[in-house]
Nucleic acid binder design. Sequence first.
DNA 1: GTGAAAGCGCTAACAG
DNA 2: CTGTTAGCGCTTTCAC
Lengths: 336, 336
Amino acid sequence: MVDVAREAGRSKSTVSAVIRGEPHITPETRKRVLDAIDKLGYRRNAAARYLARQRSDALGVVVGDFRNPFHAEMAILVEQEAAKRGYTTLLATTGDDEEVQAARIRVLLEHRVAAIIFLAFAGPKRALAQIPKDTAAVFVGFQTALGPSVSVDEATGTSLVITHLVNLGHTRIGYVTITGAAERYTEQPRLHTYQQVLEQTGLTYDERLVLQVSASDANGGPGDAHARLQQYLTRHERPTAIFAASDYTALEIIECADQLGIAIPRDLSLVGFDDIATAGTTRISLTTVAQPFRELAAEGVEAAIARIEGRQAKPRLLTPQLVVRNSTGPPPKPRG
Amino acid sequence: MVDVAREAGRSKSTVSAVIRGEPHITPETRKRVLDAIDKLGYRRNAAARYLARQRSDALGVVVGDFRNPFHAEMAILVEQEAAKRGYTTLLATTGDDEEVQAARIRVLLEHRVAAIIFLAFAGPKRALAQIPKDTAAVFVGFQTALGPSVSVDEATGTSLVITHLVNLGHTRIGYVTITGAAERYTEQPRLHTYQQVLEQTGLTYDERLVLQVSASDANGGPGDAHARLQQYLTRHERPTAIFAASDYTALEIIECADQLGIAIPRDLSLVGFDDIATAGTTRISLTTVAQPFRELAAEGVEAAIARIEGRQAKPRLLTPQLVVRNSTGPPPKPRG
DNA sequence: GTGAAAGCGCTAACAG
DNA sequence: CTGTTAGCGCTTTCAC
């Protein structure tokens, strides 16, 4: 920067003023400085800038698993929304390992991000606890009491699903989540909602209809989740319809059903959650609860910025929508 | 840090030494410092650290589109590999817009990343040009002469595909890419390879068998790509087999074919590139060229670090493998 | 083995 | 409107 100043025949602080876009600069001076910057290929130093200003314009975004298209899509949108508002984004994936999760969050913290956005995922309490109070943390994509959250109303979404299935004649409606340890924090509550809605509808909650597997279950190895799903789908008292905790999970169920020769929706109805792109595809055509992606992202960023600026971030509960496609139909005639 | 020093009854530089893990510290002192850090919840400041050391341990990773599972997967793996080697990762997505691409790269540069890894994507020349010579740039996931690259041998991959199709009896083998402007830089060369291999095999290159659409083609709007694909698939002189530039593209072709009632592989054989998870699925079962993901990521990071440390990064050309599944078969009997 | 001091590249008061 | 100055939080010689 001092080089630029010399080249422009001005002082360092004038250069700084030009860069920051201060209004009170002579056009002449501005031009000289800009030219010098150009000529020297000068690029301001984010570290030094942060240090001097003591405030950062970077948002940390942590997502559980980019492999899940919902996460990926949201990450893109959040980045876009943040950019619109003048913030840059530091993205991090964590996977299942709690060590890794803590480590990634630590890195963001060391970079002094102004806020951390948890995308459809919240690390374990331990990782969350390390976040200093003056760093805003907001949660987007799922309902939680961990902090300010922007999400769809899961009770409504679940009602939509159960009602749809009940109207088709289903009474044995299962609930399945296949997730990394990471997502347990987000999908556990969704199970709770399922249970509540079920009972409100007059159906009895049957534990045997619920399957929760961790994708990376240590005992049994990686194949374990698949084995348990297979077993769940072939049991005699299996459900006639399944509500999957996410489209990503639904995709795994489809694969397993395909392998077992279980036809969807003839033998089994399936509903997902999220409405990722693949769900709308002819081959998959998955009935699902659509989340308003863009809105979620925009509101999430807004909430984060609100917190940064010391404003209160009111929790937002958006309205989900049921998209009926070809993965649901009437239950099969009782066997035997 | 000065607070920690006070709390521990030691000086600032001693605290620094402890943090950096210098060997010559009394156990007693170390413990005091560590305790103080813990008690105060101290977290070192990456910005200040960078400023003082004048070297960064952050790698910038830029990917074109997280929606493409190949990109997402690679991003995860690169992050993991970087972490293993003590580097942290700053991830950025760019999308199609050249402005955005340049902006994202600028942000990484301002953060003084030690190197930038271009993941299955290279920005436009203009964006690339802004990278100072002392910042290493490496390209992983595609062959390019833009700089050190780690990729699969595309000629070999393409040969595998063409040979496979020729053996099945195909003579009209098309090539399709549907991509953002971003990926044009990576898939253009692949087209070239297709052309070469075709001719080596004794088939003549027919321009009409090639379709290249930009997903975000301005004229015609977003539906344009789909319309052109549809037209391509219904033309009289359509190919009996298509080599898609990526699995992601292949997925779009499948969707379009499904909508048109074109059966795969009965009416049309299809081969992809990458071997993303979905390709292995029962419903998709896509014949494709598998890339060694993990190796690509590991070697990519290695190449970046090599450059950072001033070593020469020898371009690596890994060997791809053809995975034959159910999307390819003999050509249909001639119509009419 | 530990501490004092200089300085990394920038911003922000304040003078001029 | 522009320049001077004093740090921001850390690392790194160099004395002690």
